[in-house]
Computed example of a mutant assay.
Amino acid sequence: MELKLFYRTQRDLATALNQLVDAYWSEKIKEEILIEGIKSMYKNNQDKLMKNNEFTTVIQQQCGKRRLAIVKKIMEIN
């Protein structure tokens, strides 16, 4: 699975997050790849992912609660 460093829109970012988490759930990628991918997406696309310490509305609508729960836990790990 190939990830970009920078995404053009919030929808593109949400689609990539969905694909990454879904690949992990279907056991196509390992946990380490999931963690590194999410950290990379967050680091390089903070303005599209978060606003006022919450996920943006587009990200919430496109990704859903279960996926975002995983993303949030990974972002809290340093």
Rank of each mutant, 00 (worst) to 15 (best):
K4D: 07
Y7F: 02
Y7N: 03
R8C: 13
T9D: 09
Q10C: 05
R11G: 09
R11W: 04
R11K: 15
R11F: 12
D12P: 03
D12Q: 09
D12C: 00
A14I: 08
T15K: 15
A16P: 03
L17V: 04
N18G: 07
Q19V: 05
Q19A: 07
Q19R: 10
L20H: 02
D22E: 15
A23M: 04
Y24K: 07
W25S: 14
S26L: 08
K28N: 14
K28H: 07
K28M: 14
K28V: 09
K28T: 03
I29E: 14
I29Q: 10
K30T: 13
K30F: 15
K30W: 06
E31C: 12
I33P: 00
I33F: 10
L34A: 08
L34T: 08
L34S: 12
L34Y: 02
L34E: 08
I35K: 13
E36A: 15
E36P: 06
E36R: 11
G37K: 05
K39Q: 14
S40Y: 02
M41I: 12
M41H: 04
M41D: 14
Y42M: 05
Y42A: 15
K43C: 15
K43W: 11
K43S: 12
N44Y: 10
N44M: 10
N45H: 10
N45I: 01
Q46D: 11
D47Y: 07
D47P: 01
K48R: 09
K48G: 02
K48V: 03
K48W: 12
L49M: 09
L49S: 11
K51A: 10
K51T: 08
K51S: 15
N52V: 07
N52G: 13
N52I: 01
N53Q: 13
N53H: 05
E54F: 09
E54V: 07
F55T: 11
T56D: 10
T56H: 05
T56Q: 13
T56W: 06
T57L: 15
T57C: 14
T57G: 11
T57P: 01
T57Y: 08
V58Q: 01
I59G: 03
I59M: 04
Q60N: 14
Q61P: 05
Q61Y: 05
Q61C: 08
Q62L: 06
Q62H: 02
C63I: 00
C63D: 00
C63V: 03
G64M: 01
G64F: 02
G64A: 02
G64Q: 02
G64C: 01
R66N: 07
R66E: 15
R66Y: 03
R67G: 11
R67F: 02
L68Q: 01
L68A: 05
L68M: 04
L68D: 00
A69D: 03
A69E: 08
A69Y: 03
I70M: 07
K72W: 04
K72D: 15
K73G: 11
K73L: 03
I74K: 11
I74E: 10
I74M: 10
I74F: 06
M75A: 13
M75Y: 10
E76N: 08
